[in-house]
Design a binder for these strands. Structure first.
Lengths: 203, 203
DNA sequence: GTCTATAGCCAGATAGAC
DNA sequence: GTCTATCTGGCTATAGAC
């Protein structure tokens, strides 16, 4: 109800839209719900973002920009592999525990909208696995870790940290966990996962 | 166009509905598209399944019944842990390579519909992790594997096999893979994952 | 059992007043 | 810039003929 100037309104719409899109996904989101939660009306949404599709793209883009740096932190720094890994797991899990819907949202919308997803990835400064792939090969040749295809290792690392968030409801159902236990387990995984990878790669 | 008797029609509707729901998800699926692909009209869908929600529930149920046995195969048999693990990974990945949309569909719809998901899980003969948890504890006490919380181990195993399917588009985008490379990697993972777990758990 | 036609509703988008 | 009111289209679901 309160009337502010425009930058603030646009910001409030976007923040609210992020919440609703993350909770419900693109297809199930209603513009009316965003308007209600933001305390404005539908017309104003269209005034600022023109269409649901464009609002979605703004939301997805902002979400991906939160997600990408977490991935980049393992792709790009120059520390030894295992040091990076401990930092990455801690960093990633801490952040995703505070943003529970981020991973499932990104995963779901990329699956459901793959043509948009790929053109989006091409248009942004996306994470690039070249550096770390080289590093993994170098550490293999130096005898620090056992031979493994770099993509396999990266895929395993991502799987171990991201899947519990991506498939939260399924996992809680299968392993009979409540949310409290889920959080405890994820906190343990900050070191458990790097420990596990380290052991597995010992020559 | 061709007119058969009813059991066949119902079966054809359900099979077509599984395809469309898996491709698009519940919210984005249109009854019209199911009717078109099945070569019938919308009215007939409602004649057999009454509503979109009920058709979805039939689809989800059938999909979950394909998914559950794969999980049960590691939960329930009495082989030594590592033997089971090799069988499970091979089995699971082989099946999911032939049913590419199954994991993302289950994951997505459980996330988007968690109240239905939980009541569904309670109503079926769902996988039960009790047996394998006991087995893991026993093998730890026998000194066969290092100490680890059974749920953490199970979560890691599921993550390693399931995440690449659940987040197919994201993974292909981040690691710059085409579908052929994805399939090659997944085939390698049938033994790579058990090998990795085995190494990691060596006392 | 299967079709055509349509009711009825709901969501995205726009017009126009303030 | 923000609102109310409304248009338009699309979708689920049903009525009713065959």
């Amino acid at each position: 109800m309160s009337k502010e100037k425009n930058q603030q309104t646009e910001e409030r719409i976007l923040e609210t839209a992020i919440e609703v899109f993350q909770e419900r996904g693109m297809a199930a989101t209603r513009m009316q719900e965003i308007a209600d939660r933001a305390g404005i009306n539908k017309a104003l949404l269209h005034y600022y973002f023109r269409s649901k599709q464009q609002l979605f793209e703004a939301v997805f883009s902002k979400c991906f920009m939160q997600f990408a740096p977490k991935v980049n932190s393992i792709f790009q720094s120059e520390e030894p592999l295992f040091d990076k890994l401990y930092r990455f797991a801690d960093n990633y899990i801490t952040f995703m525990l505070k943003n529970r819907f981020l991973v499932p949202f990104i995963v779901q919308e990329m699956n459901n909208n793959s043509e948009f997803a790929f053109s989006f990835l091409d248009s942004v400064n996306r994470p690039d696995p070249t550096i770390i792939s080289g590093q993994i090969k170098a550490e293999i040749e130096a005898g620090i870790i056992k031979p493994i295809h770099p993509k396999q290792l990266l895929l395993s690392i991502f799987s171990l940290v991201a899947f519990p968030f991506a498939a939260q409801v399924l996992i809680k159902g299968l392993l009979k966990m409540d949310d409290e236990e889920f959080v405890t387990l994820m906190n343990e995984r900050k070191t458990l996962i790097p420990d596990m990878i380290k052991n597995a790669l010992k020559p």
